[in-house]
Computed example of a mutant assay.
Amino acid sequence: MGRLTPWLYLAAPLGLLVIFTYVPVVSMFSYSLTNWDGVSYDSEFVGIDNYVQLFTRPELFQVFFVSLYYLAASLFQIVVALYFAVVLSFKTRFRNFFKGILFFPYLINGVAVGFVFLYFFKQGGTLDSFLGLLGVQSRQFWLGDPDLVNVSLSSVSVWRFLGLNFVLFLGAISAIPSELYEAAEIDGANRWQIFRSIIAPGIKPILGLVTILSISGSLSVFEIPYIMTGGANGSTTFVIQTVKQAFQFDKTGLASAAAVVLLALILLITWIQRKIVPDERNELA
């Protein structure tokens, strides 16, 4: 009975994991091989035809290029978050105040953020008014111009998720033993030398985690562009396209194939990240 006790405790969470994670994944893959419309009981097996469509139809493939805007924004976000985490890890005036300002946007609901910035980027709205105060007369269609819409939307993502990366970096820096900083200061090291020799190696695992989260997040962006533009003017992301294929065009098989591709991409990126930045516990073993 003693050996069964741990399994009895694990039975409920494992059952929920299988029912709500692995079973849907298997079902999604099976749907991706059919032309099921999501409503009828009948479906026709089409093999890999849905996958071929994803990579051969330009209107379906172009969403990968939209993700590049969010990827570039994520890389910029990592640099900014790391900068503030390093600066605020040292003794700075109003340090806790600035920590709160940086983390606060992450606490706001994504739908609320979308509606707030919808008026911010509106023609003649807050952004144009602010530029007017600076002497710049601007009446740009920030969300209507295909050349500006993805830059505008990805900048919102930078503002919203900066706090999450900042906290992750700050926690990793705080975990570095203070004795190392004291020894470096005794040796006369400046802050750049402390960052290069102590902080950068110490936060390497977290940097890898933040990178994988940023890349996977840039591929799965949904709520902000969906609320602000609905995918119009060339702002359709991978997830928005998948949702439209399933619920607007009744192509659940094609949408399932897109979801499988997204899952495969995230798993591939995670595998590459684990190879480039291996787990320190595995290295010690």
Results as ranks from 00 to 15, higher is better:
residue 189 A to N: 15
residue 254 L to Y: 01
residue 95 R to T: 01
residue 239 V to M: 05
residue 110 G to R: 05
residue 99 K to E: 07
residue 231 G to L: 06
residue 241 Q to M: 09
residue 226 Y to W: 12
residue 176 I to T: 02
residue 100 G to M: 07
residue 240 I to E: 00
residue 93 R to V: 13
residue 281 R to V: 01
residue 197 S to F: 14
residue 33 L to I: 12
residue 108 I to R: 06
residue 47 G to I: 13
residue 205 P to D: 12
residue 150 N to Q: 06
residue 93 R to T: 14
residue 83 Y to M: 11
residue 146 P to G: 04
residue 89 S to L: 03
residue 172 A to Y: 02
residue 39 V to E: 08
residue 217 G to N: 08
residue 57 R to H: 02
residue 218 S to A: 14
residue 25 V to E: 11
residue 37 D to P: 02
residue 158 V to H: 03
residue 2 G to R: 13
residue 84 F to S: 04
residue 53 Q to W: 06
residue 233 N to D: 14
residue 59 E to L: 00
residue 171 G to I: 00
residue 89 S to N: 15
residue 214 S to L: 04
residue 203 I to P: 05
residue 280 E to F: 02
residue 120 F to A: 07
residue 265 L to Y: 02
residue 132 G to V: 09
residue 49 D to H: 11
residue 139 R to W: 01
residue 212 I to D: 08
residue 59 E to P: 01
residue 160 R to N: 04
residue 282 N to S: 03
residue 138 S to H: 08
residue 249 F to I: 01
residue 203 I to Y: 12
residue 190 N to W: 12
residue 254 L to Q: 01
residue 56 T to A: 05
residue 270 T to Q: 14
residue 182 E to Y: 11
residue 236 T to K: 03
residue 168 L to K: 13
residue 113 V to T: 11
residue 72 A to F: 13
residue 188 G to P: 13
residue 30 S to R: 08
residue 210 V to E: 09
residue 40 S to M: 02
residue 79 V to N: 14
residue 131 L to Y: 12
residue 114 G to T: 00
residue 141 F to G: 13
residue 58 P to M: 00
residue 177 P to Y: 00
residue 26 V to G: 09
